[in-house]
Design a protein around this nucleic acid. Structure first.
Length: 580
RNA sequence: GUGCCCGUAGCUCAGCUGGAUAGAGCGUUUCCCUCCGAAGGAAAAGGUCGUUGGUUCAAAUCCAAUCGGGCACGCCA
């Protein structure tokens, strides 16, 4: 429906186009005006393109009017203000949307505008040195919803997790486990034995206990060289098992786990280096002193291997080899992104915490350089989550292992509330997550409002089907919907009609938080209709004396139900069938 | 010192990439079930979109300053 209207508008504008100017249907904005007396819909196309085409808005507007009048769905076209074009659609057109939704059921929001292109979506990628915590929860939910959205606009998505299973932090993990291992076997360990690089959480003790159970004291009193590798590998494997379990608690399943160590074995760092050398993007040199560091700080200039990332928009060049000759963390990331490129990805998205903001430019530079400009990485940073207990902030310390884990959150408030809280805000905004408020079943908690709408619809169908048996999908699609003409009914229909548009825009903008907002709007319109039926018996859904009208109303409810189900599916929340 | 993000109603936040008189929910006030669930609905009050300039038919939205808050900042991972 929207696409045919857009085509009409585009057709009307086309004669004014100069050669070489390309206009796309999707550039044309069609919206519901805030003041509904202006019409059902409006477009600002005339004003939008006036400047670009060098034509007076009024002239364009008149052409667009003429074009719109040719569309059989459209009537009452008028020009207002500086060049807004207002118009209405026949009730029948809105009513037909219901049939379309019911027919496509939960596939209504799917379009194939990206033509099954592959896209790599990297998210979570937590270091396997500790259990997933609340930040990872936001990352995981955000990523999984983005994946769902991208699939709806026709991307083939690979959900990917990068395991940093190499480097010093893993050694410190292993050493921490070893200390606890000795402790389990009777050695006396004090907190002072743990250096500041080591890990103190309870989970370290769990790992140690499991190790003792499986391997007894075979590593006790041995030199580090004899146990370090084993402890590293063992710890990583166990930690990753837990990571996967924690993700499953949130309903998140990754398609691929890529190991840093594996990439290293394949010598991919050197391969990346060769590519960059050929492009003259590698040189030996020293980095300038950072602006914030004054003479009093002990700054020392050191020669190292550098990547010319400034060539690609970064602020300074970046080290890929430390002064002692070993690789930096960034070198690993070069290898990893080369791996993604070699697997054929030209579009990549990475979801990172806001504390990585200084890292974004070098990653983008790396992808650009390694792919010779063919691949593009987009990064979404999400802000931190503050946890509150009835208004009071909960203190967290990673060092002491007192941070709130993902598992703990899910166990306290459930998967659905956690997901909703994590996804309902813009990723650039900090979230205050209050344990007490989160589970309150009130309007402070909009998830319940949406769930409630869905439950009410289910309830209506239960009532109907108890008397009349199951209703057939075709009957709902094909029935005469002309009685659906009340303002409240039309408002709901219009909102449903916009669903596909909204999902598309949320996907393209990578802004999943819009989805729950749209769901809330639909729920609100449904609740309004329901209550209107309390006063006006003509608007009640079930009229036992009139099956024809009942079926028409049920078709509207079915369409609403399908849309809400699609929304629940996107945000990964399980719909409730009843609340007792 | 530099970079990124945030600042919208008493509170928590939307605002669809520049559109018409800035919107929801909570809280406050007033109404609405003999009824498919009132865990709901209808309405009222509540605003200098941090501040100041600029760009244009049009700015909460873009640009430049500035204030306040968060995050980050040579070889850590």
């Amino acid at each position: 429906m929207f696409s045919s209207i857009r085509e009409c508008i585009l057709k009307a504008i086309r004669p004014f186009l100069q050669p070489g100017v390309v206009l796309l249907c999707d550039d044309i904005l069609i919206e519901q005006p805030k003041d509904r007396t202006f019409g059902d819909l409006y477009t600002n196309a005339a004003m939008m393109f006036a400047k670009r085409l060098g034509v007076a808005p009024k002239v364009l507007a008149e052409a667009v009017c003429e074009g719109l009048n040719k569309n059989e769905d459209v009537f009452d076209v008028s020009i207002a203000g500086a060049g807004f074009i207002n118009f209405r659609l026949h009730k029948k057109t809105w009513q037909n949307v219901i049939s379309e939704i019911i027919e496509k059921q939960n596939r209504y929001s799917y379009s194939n505008i990206f033509n099954n292109a592959t896209i790599n979506l990297e998210f979570v990628s937590a270091n396997p040195t500790g259990p997933l915590h609340t930040g990872h929860a936001r990352n995981a939910v955000f990523g999984s919803v983005v994946a769902n959205l991208l699939e709806r606009v026709g991307y083939k998505v690979t959900r990917e997790f990068y395991i940093n299973d190499q480097g010093n932090q893993i050694k410190f993990l292993a050493r921490s486990v070893y200390l606890r291992y000795c402790e389990v076997l009777g050695a006396t360990i004090s907190e002072n034995d743990f250096t500041s690089d080591m890990y103190c959480g309870e989970y370290i003790k769990d790992l140690a206990k499991a190790l003792v159970e499986e391997h007894g004291n075979e590593f006790l009193n041995k030199d580090e060289t004899e146990w370090l590798d084993f402890f590293c590998r063992y710890s990583i494997n166990r930690m990753m098992e837990n990571v996967k379990k924690d993700l499953a608690l949130l309903g998140v399943v990754m398609d691929k786990y890529t190991s840093e160590a594996e990439l290293c074995k394949r010598n991919l760092v050197n391969e990346a280096l060769e590519i960059l050398k050929k492009r003259d993007d590698i040189y030996e040199g020293a980095l300038p002193r950072p602006k914030g560091i004054t003479d009093s700080d002990d700054w020392e200039e050191r020669p190292q291997t550098l990547f010319r990332s400034t060539k690609y928009g970064d602020d300074v060049d970046r080290a890929i080899r430390k002064a002692d000759g070993t690789w930096t963390y960034f070198a690993g990331d070069l290898a990893y992104h080369l791996d993604k490129i070699q697997r054929g990805f030209t579009k990549m998205i990475a979801i990172l915490g806001a504390d990585h903001n200084g890292y974004v430019k070098r990653l983008k530079s790396a992808v650009s350089a390694l792919s010779e400009g063919r691949a593009k990485l987009e990064v979404r940073l999400y802000q931190l989550v503050n946890f509150l207990e009835n208004g009071k902030p909960v203190r967290m310390s990673k060092r002491a292992g007192t941070f709130i884990t993902l598992k703990e959150v899910v166990e306290r408030v459930g998967k659905d509330v956690t997901r909703y809280m994590m996804i309902s805000r813009h990723h650039d905004v900090m979230i205050d997550f209050d344990f007490v408020k989160a589970v309150e079943q009130s309007m402070d908690n909009p998830l319940f409002y949406i769930q409630y709408a869905y439950v009410r619809i289910c309830s209506v169908f239960r009532h109907f089907e108890a008397e009349n048996g199951k209703i057939d999908k075709n009957e709902l699609m094909d029935c005469d919907k002309s009685i659906l003409s009340d303002e409240a009914e039309l408002a709901l229909m219009k909102a449903l009609a916009f669903w596909k548009e909204q999902i598309k825009s949320a996907a393209i903008a990578i802004e999943p938080h819009r989805v729950p907002a749209y769901m809330q709007n639909i729920a609100s319109l449904f609740h309004a209709l329901w209550n209107k039926g309390k006063l006006n018996t003509n608007l009640r859904f079930i009229d036992t004396a009139n099956r024809k009208d009942t079926v028409a109303r049920l078709s509207l409810l079915m369409a609403t139900k399908n849309i809400l189900e699609d929304g629940f599916d996107i945000i990964g929340v399980t719909p409730m069938l009843e609340m007792r």
